[in-house]
Simulated assay, not measured.
Amino acid sequence: MAFSQRTLEFLVENRLQNSKAWFDEHKEEYRLLVLEPMIQLTAALGPTVLDIDPQLIVDPRQGRSISRVRRDNRFTHDKSLYREVMWCVFLRDKKLWEGPPAFYFEIRPDRFDFGCGYYQAGANTMAAIREMILRNDPVYLEARKAWKEGGFQLEGDSYKRSKYPAQPEEKRNWLDRKTMSFNKDCFDFQLLFSDRLADYVAQGFRQLAPVYRFFLQAEARGPVVEEQPQPQVIPQRPAEMW
């Protein structure tokens, strides 16, 4: 069973209705249009992600590898009951969602996207990533090559002022991130609604395997003390020369 235009329409309508009574009345539509296609896609991607890392968890159930459509809004300003985005995620321990890197896929009303990265990388992880970049670690070079060839966007909030102004722009694009993920936005709805979707996403995951290995290497390094970049010293002319 594939996603369809009705899948996206249901997610939008459910968010706009913002009503548990309405959702309960249309729960069977949710199951057929949204949940079942996501379950099948998650299961289809399982062999690929397990081949990349056998420790990744593949559990095609809602609340496990698959997101819930009901929002937990207890600690948010937005009190909407339902989201219009659904996703599946593959990581080593779901309890550590803000910890280990993950592969993911998600659908939105205007597109779908997928990739590999962190929801929120820890400070020690980012320090290890920067250290590997600065010394041109071979694992980083393989990850950079995969990023360039795969057509993924490097995402994640950046510091407003670069901490590494002397580094080449390409490296600063990595070094100045507070967190990091590699994402591909897709607007091909014919692909989204077809049986080719799982193969397409699986191929993208395989392209990102070197990036995932780079992240795991950073995780394995443990705490790293970052060297603070030295400020550039501008020679001053003697006073008598002014």
Rank of each mutant, 00 (worst) to 15 (best):
Q232L: 14
L191I: 09
Q120G: 00
R172M: 09
R111I: 02
N18V: 01
R61Y: 07
Y159S: 03
P100D: 06
I133L: 13
A239Q: 12
M241H: 06
D185N: 13
A218I: 05
Y212V: 14
E155S: 15
M1V: 12
Y82R: 01
A202P: 01
V89I: 10
F187L: 11
P37E: 12
Y140A: 05
K27A: 13
P47M: 10
L197H: 02
G122Y: 04
P37L: 14
N14Q: 15
I52K: 01
E169L: 07
Y159M: 04
N73I: 07
Y140T: 04
G99D: 15
P101L: 08
E169R: 04
A43H: 04
P47C: 05
S19M: 00
K94L: 10
T48V: 10
P165R: 06
V139E: 08
K148Q: 15
G115N: 06
S80E: 00
F205W: 09
D195W: 03
I66K: 00
T76W: 04
E36D: 08
L141G: 05
A146P: 03
G122W: 07
R64T: 03
F90A: 01
V69S: 06
P238A: 07
P223T: 14
P47K: 02
K160S: 01
E106M: 14
A202M: 01
K171S: 01
E13D: 02
Y119L: 12
Q207V: 13
L50F: 03
L208M: 09
Q207H: 09
A143L: 01
P223Y: 11
C186F: 08
L141N: 06
I52M: 03
Y200M: 00
F103R: 00
I133G: 00
F152H: 05
F23I: 07
G150T: 01
T48M: 13
D195A: 06
A44G: 10
G156T: 05
F193L: 14
N183E: 15
E170P: 01
E98T: 02
E170V: 13
D137K: 03
M132I: 04
K27T: 13
Q203T: 12
Q190L: 04
A102C: 12
M241P: 05
V69F: 06
R161S: 02
E28G: 07
Q232W: 13
D93P: 01
Q232P: 01
G150L: 00
Q207I: 15
R177V: 14
Q5I: 14
M1E: 09
F114D: 00
F215C: 06
Q230Y: 05
F193K: 09
E240P: 04
R213K: 06
A143D: 04
M241R: 10
Y200F: 06
D53F: 05
R61A: 13
P138F: 13
E131D: 14
V58E: 07
F215W: 11
K79L: 04
Q55H: 08
I234Y: 13
F215T: 06
Q17L: 06
P210E: 07
A166E: 09
